[in-house]
Amino acid sequence: MSYRQIYIRKAEKLSLRHHSLIIKKESEEIAIPLEDIASLLLEDHQTVITAALLAALSDYYITLIICDEKHLPITQTLPMNMHYKQLKVFYDQLGVKKPFNSQLWNRLIHYKISNQKAVVDSTVKNEDASVKLKQCIKDLQSGDKTNREAIAAKIFFEAMYGNVFSRKRKSEDAVNAALNYGYSIVAGQVTRVLTMYGFNTNIGIHHESMNNSFNLSYDFVEPYRPVVDLYVYKHLNELDYPLPIAIRKELIELLQFKVKMNKKFYNLQFAIEETVKSYIKCLENDDSSLLCLPELTIDENQEDDSIEL
């Protein structure tokens, strides 16, 4: 099973040879078996990529993420027709009724706020914020009709970064840049797994923007966001804008962060796959309680399976 995230900061050429990624850097060539790679993040706009490699990346379900001039993820490549029952999965998605989606969304937000509370309890230890987040969980209604998610987010970010902090998707401050970078990496992995199992990411559970091709991806990102939040808070003193190389690399490595799910521990990338597989069971059995979601664990001993080149 693929497990490595390849971060390429500078390279002359990326090509394919004998089912391996070939990275040419000056007079050096590095070969990495494609079967080991889960994702490939490229920052260098001067790097040449061969068409043969792009096709092979699709065959091996490897997501390619390309960054802009500010080193922020901006483009992701996805294979077409990856699943042998793709049309059936598509019809299953279309057939989901709104009340069922409301139950799923309620479960996603329950875990998101619970994980936000875990971050607050393990870092800033703000008792008032912790109590309020716990109350948000208790007040959750089907489909989050009273918008507890937004209320919890306000409580959470104020507790973590102060009253003056404003959460923005496009911002040139270091904290927002780090959050956006980390969320994009997690969303890329979610999208990769969803498409691998035949899902159309346009069709969301709660997100339904006509201008968003990744509505479903951002539904499933929600309970995983606090992993990024935890990292960013712990590295506040190291943040800068544009983001330093070391920070970008470590945000990619968060896919190896361990979370708890069904009394077992999984690296984030495998936990996401368990979530998607459980979503299939939810649809097949019309039972939202089958959706497996992560519980955030605070552990300093996290392994690193990324490669920087």
Rank of each mutant, 00 (worst) to 15 (best):
residue 4 R to F: 11
residue 4 R to Y: 14
residue 5 Q to K: 14
residue 16 L to V: 02
residue 21 L to K: 04
residue 23 I to R: 02
residue 23 I to C: 01
residue 30 I to F: 08
residue 30 I to Q: 05
residue 40 L to H: 02
residue 47 T to R: 08
residue 48 V to W: 15
residue 49 I to T: 10
residue 51 A to W: 10
residue 54 L to G: 09
residue 58 S to I: 11
residue 59 D to G: 11
residue 61 Y to N: 14
residue 63 T to N: 08
residue 65 I to W: 02
residue 66 I to C: 12
residue 71 H to G: 04
residue 73 P to H: 03
residue 80 M to N: 15
residue 85 K to W: 05
residue 87 L to W: 14
residue 88 K to G: 13
residue 90 F to T: 09
residue 98 K to Q: 13
residue 107 R to H: 14
residue 108 L to G: 09
residue 110 H to L: 12
residue 111 Y to E: 12
residue 113 I to N: 04
residue 119 V to Y: 08
residue 127 E to Q: 11
residue 127 E to K: 15
residue 132 K to T: 06
residue 133 L to S: 02
residue 134 K to A: 14
residue 135 Q to H: 11
residue 139 D to V: 04
residue 155 I to T: 08
residue 158 E to C: 09
residue 163 N to H: 15
residue 164 V to M: 11
residue 169 R to M: 00
residue 170 K to H: 06
residue 187 A to Q: 02
residue 188 G to T: 00
residue 191 T to N: 15
residue 193 V to Q: 00
residue 197 Y to M: 10
residue 206 H to P: 07
residue 215 N to G: 00
residue 227 V to K: 05
residue 231 Y to R: 00
residue 232 V to Q: 01
residue 233 Y to L: 05
residue 234 K to I: 02
residue 234 K to T: 13
residue 239 L to A: 06
residue 240 D to A: 12
residue 242 P to F: 04
residue 251 L to E: 03
residue 251 L to N: 00
residue 252 I to K: 04
residue 252 I to T: 06
residue 254 L to I: 05
residue 254 L to W: 01
residue 255 L to C: 09
residue 260 K to M: 10
residue 264 K to Y: 09
residue 267 N to R: 07
residue 269 Q to H: 11
residue 275 T to D: 01
residue 276 V to G: 01
residue 282 C to E: 00
residue 284 E to V: 09
residue 286 D to L: 12
residue 288 S to P: 11
residue 289 S to N: 14
residue 291 L to M: 05
residue 296 L to H: 13
residue 297 T to N: 07
residue 299 D to Q: 12
residue 301 N to P: 09
